[in-house]
Design a protein around this nucleic acid. Structure first.
Lengths: 257, 257
DNA sequence: CGATAAATTGACATGGATCAAATACGGTGG
DNA sequence: CCACCGTATTTGATCCATGTCAATTTATCG
């Protein structure tokens, strides 16, 4: 199912521009020195392409590499024995959905592509060398996983205590800021290539209900959502509807330069 | 409101036995060398006591110490502006609920005692010295925060896709294994000093519904729950009812010796 | 022994699920 | 460029797990 594979050696000049997204992402949550940025760009990685719906890492795997989303969109999910699915995270370019595999052997959930996606794989050994050489990057990666956890907590609040409208509005607020963090939300507009059923599985709602709520949000002039493209029309009102407070994202730079 | 404060210097022989719980906890999720264990016991810490319901760390704080639960029971929670509360984690002795404060400045949620609780505070500087001297402990602490995140994900699955019975049964399964990990669940029995309303706030249910589900679980002979003491009567059936799979806890030792 | 919090019970209401159909739409082959 | 197909969205009708409200009983504790 993998359509394409390329390998990049460390000191290499024609790296794809998408590699910079990792730098952007980390810069949105911490400060990096020039050397650290360069070290990130020099990481050896293997790139693979995935089709929509394809698994990138699977529950039960014991990866020896970390994966980095270069292009596309991915999610982390788990299936219950009877088929119910819970999506627990969405991942934009620049995210490393299984960074945890560095310290946790067995995957307790899967990672899948939600649109044609390019993922880069970085050997654990390289990651360890890197964090050994640059303690600041160790700090950055650990912090990244901690922010990941903060996002899980916020989602937990959502499914536990927010109603349908708040949940969906909240997700949109979060995704706007995260896409902004990697410079992928010009004009408060970004690509959200997910099905209404996917949103339901992420927020603990049925796809029918998601549809009705989205219609409300559109009717009220808060957003536009067509062809997987989301536009925020009224950021203030949307945040209010979502009871949104961005603290939990712990971004230090609104958007990387 | 703080009733009592004691300070321990590093090389000190009459440390309270509860300090060992941190060692137990970490040992339940990783392997420690003798030196690492000793280094943990030598950590300087200040002990404070908290009454039931009292906050130990509060949303918005920027702690300069990490807190460790020595005795008692704590939770992490967040309030929505209108008063709805979501509890996102329970913490047994041995847990460090705000380990994250090492790398994330601002608390995005609060930590509270759910019964009279003793918490130890370890300066961030000491933690940094420790992890610098013992990289194995750095690995252990990072791993601990990652398992924390895995637990959030599992709770997310619960509120998102499990019904009331599964959710409550699942929580009980999890708490049994975690209490076991710190040697506090003799005979599959442990103290769970929480109100039915608390459970509701943790699992996204109303306290009335929690009450009814608990009655079912008792009637079906799966558990006993009186006076805050939970006993598992039928572990097999309980796991089945909960669709429980312990992988996500990533415990390497069923119980520390 | 009150007093206050927690657990329990009953009656009733509802957000959101489920089921089933009817469009719309993106992609593909002709 | 169009006809067609599988998928996603939308709509309507109905149902139910859980919520809400209110009262009663049972701890718990000074």
């Amino acid at each position: 199912m993998q359509q394409h594979t390329t390998s990049y050696g460390p000191p290499h000049s024609d790296r794809p521009p998408e590699r910079h997204r990792l730098v952007r992402k980390l810069q949105s949550i911490t400060d990096l020195t020039a050397e650290e940025r360069q070290a990130l760009l020099d990481l050896p990685m293997t790139v693979r392409s995935y089709a929509r719906g394809e698994d990138i890492v699977r529950e039960g795997d014991t990866p020896s590499e970390c994966c980095l989303v270069l292009e596309g969109f991915a999610c982390r999910y788990k299936l219950l024995p009877d088929g119910r699915r819970q999506i627990m995270a969405f991942h934009t370019p620049g995210d490393m959905p299984d960074l945890q595999s560095l310290h946790i052997g067995v995957m307790d959930h899967s990672v899948a592509a939600m649109m044609p996606t390019q993922a880069a794989f970085i050997p654990h050994t390289s990651m360890r060398d890197l964090t050994h050489a640059y303690p600041g990057l160790l700090h950055a990666f650990w912090r990244d996983t901690l922010i990941d956890a903060a996002i899980f907590r916020e989602w937990l609040i959502g499914v536990g205590r927010r109603d349908g409208h708040e949940r969906i509005a909240h997700l949109i607020c979060e995704m706007l800021l995260r896409f902004r963090g990697v410079d992928l939300a010009p004009n408060d507009t970004f690509k959200m290539p997910v099905t209404q059923a996917d949103i339901g599985d992420a927020l603990g709602l049925s796809h029918v209900h998601v549809n009705r709520v989205l219609q409300d949000l559109r009717r009220d002039g808060l957003i536009t959502w067509t062809n997987s493209v989301v536009s925020i029309l009224d950021w203030e009102k949307l945040q209010k509807r979502a009871l949104f407070d961005a603290t939990y994202l712990h971004q230090v730079h609104e958007a990387a330069a």
